[in-house]
Amino acid sequence: MKRKIIKWSIIVTSVAAILFLALGVHLYYVTDNFYQEQRAQPQLQLGRIDFQQPVDSATAKIIQAKVKSIPGVQKTYFNIPDKILVYSFYNTAQNAENIFASFNQTNNIPATRYVVAEADKTKGCPAMSDEAQSGLILIYKKMFSIF
């Protein structure tokens, strides 16, 4: 009787271990694929130009049109009171340095390209942090967003 119990315990434990391992491999495969697919896609990102002197709304429109005409630029937004222009572009098609250089070829208003300090890149809205999500929940979310 005792041997029978031990035998069944070993079988049940082995099956549970195999299933657990299979689940782990499946989760790893699915989530790894998800991130690889995400990273392989073109990433829309933002660039910013700060102007050193006041810009009126008419000039702001001209500046926006100039920046928007640069290949790869998608959208622009001008904060006129603070003299800040923000634009978006896909990182597979352009980069902020090129866009600023192209814009400056025809720009007469003193302006600088805003560059984020390395230390500040680790900061941001807390909602963006993957650390803010528990590992298993994050895995499940990514897993179910695929299926």
């Binding site: 990433q43 800040i84 923000v86 990182n91 500040d120 900061k123 941001g124």
Partner: peptide
Amino acid sequence: AADPTMAAFFPVLLGEVGVGDLSGLG
């Protein structure tokens, strides 16, 4: 991203990423 008050809380938005990395905007 164009608001100097808010920019301090969202620096990662303007941080550039290369091909193969995820951007803060997305």
